[in-house]
Amino acid sequence: MSVALPKPLAISVSVMLEGWTDDSAPGIGPMGNPLKPGVLDLQARSWAEYGPKAGAWRLLDILHKLEVRSVFYVSGILAERYPDLMKAIVGAGHAVAAHGWGQNIIPSYQTAAEEAHDLQRCVKAIEQSTGRSPPGWLSPRCTPSDRTSALLAKSGFDWHADFFDQDLPRRHSTPDGMITAVPFTMEVNDMPLYVRYGAEPEAFTRTFERIAGNWPRLGLPQGCLDITVHAHVFGRPFGAIEFMNCLEAVQRYDEWAWLTDHQTLAGLCKAG
């Protein structure tokens, strides 16, 4: 059963705060050309570390200035290493959801025991740094295993965002109980647009406005759209400016669109 939205287009704001284990680095970085297999890319590691050290703080400032609430999807390894940042995120009124232990650890590659272990240490790190259990989950690379939803339901999570097959949140049955499946859209996301496809920063807002501005032409269906930035990518000045532009653009479509976040959508779905 899907949720009925207050307005046709729900626009969720999410910040990805991602970390890698010490023996790994992002597979995609600004240099473009990957190093030889077996060589640790220290440039990519340093690039990624901008997220917790500078980018997340800038994005927090923007969200505060525009009075926008977001979900921060956080790697457990960063929750453990940057407790002051975690406290600042929660103190500003944002939700901290789980994004795996490290970005190089993909659930679909793991055994059941490995996945359960990494999920629990991610939860523990977030609990210890924020004082709260993470209510939601998004897998590294958005790629769960065939048992992830059941493991999350069993562990007490409210929502799971590794879903791309429908337009609205819905209750999802697993062998270990129910969980809310929150759809995650990739169209307004700095990682594919800027890093993978090489688009200029302005493509972020253009893509958003193409969708939101033309929503009435589609018949004003009920649906979800994500505005997603990574702290180590659009947390930098060139991207933060565009993130701000995009959030401000939402006001032009407030007749049929509204700003929200995955936690709010999951709550509406569960209540309905």
Rank of each mutant, 00 (worst) to 15 (best):
I105W: 14
E114M: 12
D167V: 06
S139Q: 07
D162E: 06
W137I: 01
D146F: 08
Y109R: 15
I179G: 03
G100I: 10
H99W: 11
T130H: 10
S108H: 14
T180Q: 06
A153I: 08
H99E: 07
D176L: 13
Q166P: 02
D146H: 10
A181I: 11
H160S: 03
L168S: 00
V96K: 13
D146A: 10
A125E: 10
H117Q: 10
Q110L: 15
D167I: 05
D84C: 00
L119C: 11
P140I: 01
P175D: 04
D176W: 09
P83M: 00
R132F: 14
D167T: 03
C122W: 07
A112R: 11
P134F: 06
E114I: 08
S129A: 15
D176H: 11
R121G: 13
S173N: 06
G102K: 13
P134M: 05
S149I: 00
P140F: 05
R121D: 13
V90D: 04
L119N: 12
R171Q: 05
G91F: 01
T174H: 00
M178G: 06
S108K: 15
I126C: 13
P140N: 05
G93E: 04
L168C: 04
Y109T: 15
G156M: 02
A181H: 13
W159N: 01
D165T: 06
G136D: 07
S133E: 13
G156D: 04
F157W: 05
A181W: 11
H172F: 07
T174I: 00
V96F: 14
F163H: 06
W159Q: 01
G177S: 09
A116P: 14
S129C: 09
C142M: 08
S155N: 04
E114K: 12
E115W: 09
S173I: 03
V96R: 14
F164I: 11
L119V: 14
S133M: 14
V90P: 06
F164T: 12
S145F: 06
H94T: 02
W137K: 06
D146N: 09
L151M: 15
R171C: 05
S129P: 13
P175Y: 07
L168V: 02
L85W: 05
D118Q: 14
A181Q: 10
P169I: 02
P107I: 09
C122P: 07
G156K: 02
R171L: 06
F163N: 02
P83E: 01
A125C: 11
G177D: 06
P134E: 02
D118P: 08
S108D: 15
S129G: 10
S133K: 15
T111L: 13
V90H: 03
A161T: 05
A125S: 14
P83N: 00
G93P: 08
K154S: 08
G136P: 14
A95M: 00
S173D: 09
H160M: 01
H94I: 02
K87W: 04
A125I: 12
A98W: 10
G177F: 12
L168Q: 02
W101G: 07
T143N: 12
I89F: 05
W101H: 11
Q128W: 13
S139G: 08
W101E: 09
Q166S: 04
A161E: 03
Q110K: 11
N104Q: 12
L85T: 01
W159A: 00
D165N: 12
T111S: 15
T111H: 15
E127W: 11
H160I: 01
L168D: 04
Q166G: 07
S173C: 05
A153L: 05
A95D: 09
E127C: 11
A181R: 07
